[in-house]
Amino acid sequence: MSNLHQEIKQMIIDALDLEDIEAAEIHDDEPLFVDGLGLDSIDALEIGLALQKHYGIKLKSDSEETRQHFASVNALAALIQSQSNNK
């Protein structure tokens, strides 16, 4: 597990104040919404805020693209990496 992945998992747990789960229990490719971790639309808002706070990421308004970024920890990590490469 890379540092970034670990960091993202901890960020999700902290931002959403999740209980009964440790970072290590979230799988990199597990869906975050609906199945898998079962997050909801308010959680998506919170993650959006946390991404901005921790990584300065602004989400694009194209919601299909955003949905893809929010698919899993892997997808979030890819988003963060691509945005930091662009800087």
Binding site: L49, L59, S63, T66
Partner: peptide, 11 residues
Amino acid sequence: NCQFAEDIFTR
């Protein structure tokens, strides 16, 4: 509808 604050902002 807008989903995120970003959507509200850009729209």
